[in-house]
């Protein structure tokens, strides 16, 4: 009986295994293959050596990605907390409102920020009509971070909200019964229990922010070339798949390290100690 069910479960898992092999393992292998070969297909480390030129770009991408992620977290956490306290009716309305912009095309959303931030865009028209000096909004780092926060915020809110919703309310009551005031309860119960949501939200915002190229191209001007832009050029214009692949490869490793550090925050005993 036991044996059979394990066979069944293995069979049920087979499609996923095939999927994973075909669309996760094989592409990763291809990225690695291109990263370590030259145009003739011979093994080389030249692509990786060339990456030292782009170290500033890597640093900038990770920094802006991190900044966007932290801002997302600061906005999303209170919002998710408030949402989780509301009645079911209000909750579904609020979830809906958060999801709504995501139904619109990503490119379109970024493009509309251009119209808002331009030198003669909506914001500056408003400011100048009130008699103030116009501001340089577009083509700045701030605009890029804003674009990232705006586009990826729902990915931070939703996991935190889901985790908070599932929190066993009796734990909160127990803490209150034991004499904890509101701050104590929030600090010792709510925050530790929501860490898994924060970690998955962090991942879902950080990864696309670090590797984005569209947002930086449209909102960043000349001063903000991110690693995603460089990779895009290698594939689209330069036709140098090898350098592009090795850049992606390094980026993957860096993201992996960042996430590993992040995961240190979520190990079980760590959560309780906070």
């Amino acid at each position: 009986m036991n044996k059979q069910s394990s066979l069944m479960s293995r069979l049920a898992g087979a499609p996923y295994l095939v999927w994973a092999a075909l669309f996760i393992i094989v592409p990763l292998g291809m990225v690695a293959y291109y990263a370590f070969t030259d145009s003739e297909g011979a093994f080389t480390l030249a692509n990786l050596a060339e990456i030292s030129k782009y170290k500033d770009t890597f640093v900038l991408s990770i920094w802006l990605g991190l900044l966007a992620t932290v801002i997302c977290l600061l906005i999303a956490y209170p919002l998710a907390y408030i949402m989780a306290q509301k009645g079911p009716q209000k909750q579904s309305t609020m979830t809906m409102l958060i999801m709504l912009p995501m139904w619109m095309n990503f490119l379109l959303r970024t493009y509309s920020w251009m119209t808002i931030l331009e030198d003669y865009g909506l914001v500056n028209t408003l400011i100048t009509s009130l008699g103030f000096e116009p501001l340089q909004l577009i083509n700045t780092r701030g605009a890029v971070v804003l674009g990232m926060v705006y586009n990826f915020l729902p990915y931070m809110i939703l996991p935190i909200y889901t985790v908070m919703l599932k929190t066993d309310h009796s734990l909160v009551e127990a803490a209150q019964d034991l004499g904890g005031n509101k701050l104590d309860v929030f600090r010792n119960v709510t925050i530790p229990l929501s860490v898994p949501g924060v970690v998955s939200g962090f991942t879902m915002v950080f990864v696309p922010s670090v590797s984005t190229f569209y947002i930086s191209q449209k909102l960043g001007g000349t001063g903000t070339i991110l690693i995603g832009d460089i990779i895009e050029t290698q594939f689209q214009t330069a036709n140098n798949f090898h350098l592009g692949a090795s850049l992606s490869f390094i980026l993957m490793i860096l993201i992996f390290i960042c996430l590993a550090v992040m995961n240190r925050f979520s190990d079980d005993d760590g959560g309780v100690i906070i």
Binding site: Y54, D56, T57, L60, W63, L67, T224, I225, D229
Partner: peptide, 18 residues
């Protein structure tokens, strides 16, 4: 071309921030 475009990046803040 990439070199040119990266040149414009002043990234002290990124290093400090990171």
């Amino acid at each position: 071309w990439n070199e040119l475009k990266i040149e414009g990046n002043s990234i002290m803040d990124a290093y400090v921030g990171l």
